[in-house]
Nucleic acid binder design. Structure first.
Lengths: 247, 247
DNA sequence: CACGATCCGTACGGTAGCGTACCGACGCTA
DNA sequence: TAGCGTCGGTACGCTACCGTACGGATCGTG
């Protein structure tokens, strides 16, 4: 976070994995990195196709979805500046097994997959950080599996909003009910209902595609515990991952 | 699968990861492996505690669960002879982040975690197989996240039964409705209902803790597509993982 | 063979969320 | 400023599933 962002294009170290690297490594890697802006719904990977790059979100938020035979999709992971897509690249694969796209517009630090895998093979510090990110992501997907089963739409909506706030570091998020319904695997009407509930409680305000957090504490109170669990898992991961330590 | 099992204790190569290893590697590793019988509900890991061993199921089936603050649990992954617990061991960690226990009694090939991690660092063949197993497991958890949200209890019950059948390689599975309810995150009564539905359709028969598959095709027809998706993912993984290839 | 424990069938009211649909409000563009 | 596309409010009947509860069947054990 030393270099000032150049004309709207933020620094790669806005991504927490890249930020945690030793100066020397980061400088070397950044030579091969492009900071790329993504617009909403822009694909970064499609399932069963080769991965060409690995993307480390900076201020964008990406979404990894599973696709059913009937074409309907459902989010199975959300990835912000704490992670990267696609984890398959760190798991002896060059094929993406899921589709991922941009959920909240912003920038990613884009690395060629060859660079990524070469670094993984030779740089223990990088490897540890990446593997920790894989573990955290898996942990979050596991949490989601339970959350989807046990928690209401209101709870999951609140959790989603808080996580997204943490990722984009803004209290205002650009997102429509329609889009959110896709993310949470529910109806658009269900989201409208949940949004109304949270608005009546004074937690949020929204209008045509913009949701704003008004009362942080109240929102947390209405979110399921999965929010705190995931947030803590991410923080723990970066505490322990510092400078390539095992934990 | 060359050595005959010794008096009820099956060979470690009943686990597909170990079986896929080159002869030399397998012989060397098996010197440090114990084949351990597990009884139902026996824990293999507890969350936030150090992992001492890595377990490769042979004819046992293990369950990885997430725990809510109120103590209720929910399965986030099932692991049979295609995998191992806990994946954290392959992801730069020595702490288990989830609890795992024996779901279907049987044997696991148990390896000290030091052996596991040393082999991972030095043996590319082993590393590839293990990373593929991590990827497949993550894929299955992702599938579960969607499945929990989109599919009915009957569909999920059928899927669970088919997957378990494939893992234990028997058409009769020892499991109570109560236990299954815990696995699928529903009520016991909900499982009884689903079981009755499948029995009326002639798919299964059951009595006091034993479920038997009668009509394979009919059961598959009533299961959600996640069964085929997961089964294919596992097979694909072992096809591609053969002898340490990337894919 | 009797007993107790486990396991399963079934039922009740209640609720979250679905699929669908219609309409009004907003905001961009010409 | 008029028009149109997008977005959100709301409503209907309906289904899946919940929490709870009670009683009967089965099985192992003394």
């Amino acid at each position: 976070m030393t270099r000032p962002p150049a004309a709207g294009a933020p620094d790669p170290s806005g991504n927490r994995i890249l930020a945690a690297l030793l100066e020397a490594t980061r400088t070397r890697l950044e030579a091969g990195i492009d900071v790329v802006p993504l617009h909403r719904q822009q694909f970064t990977n499609r399932y069963d196709t080769p991965m060409l790059t690995v993307d480390f979100p900076i201020d964008a938020v990406l979404s990894v979805v599973a696709t059913l035979a009937n074409g309907s999709t459902c989010e199975v992971a959300t990835v912000g500046r704490e992670g990267f897509v696609e984890i398959d690249a760190a798991l002896a694969s060059r094929i993406a097994h899921r589709t991922s796209f941009c959920q909240i517009p912003g920038h990613v630090a884009r690395m060629p997959i060859d660079t990524f895998q070469a670094e993984l093979d030779t740089n223990r510090e990088f490897k540890t950080l990446v593997l920790h990110a894989v573990r955290t992501r898996t942990f979050m997907t596991e949490q989601l599996a339970m959350c989807n089963l046990k928690h209401t739409i209101v709870e999951r909506f609140a959790r989603w909003l808080l996580m997204t706030r943490d990722r984009v570091q803004r209290v205002e998020v650009n997102v429509t009910h329609e889009f959110l319904a896709m993310m949470l695997g529910s109806r658009r009407a269900g989201i409208s209902q949940a949004a109304a509930t949270l608005q009546e409680a004074g937690c949020i305000a929204y209008r045509r595609g913009i949701v704003k957090i008004l009362d942080d504490a109240a929102l947390i109170a209405r979110a399921c515990e999965c929010y705190a669990t995931e947030r803590d898992a991410i923080e723990m991961s970066f505490q322990n991952a510092g400078r390539g330590k095992h934990c």
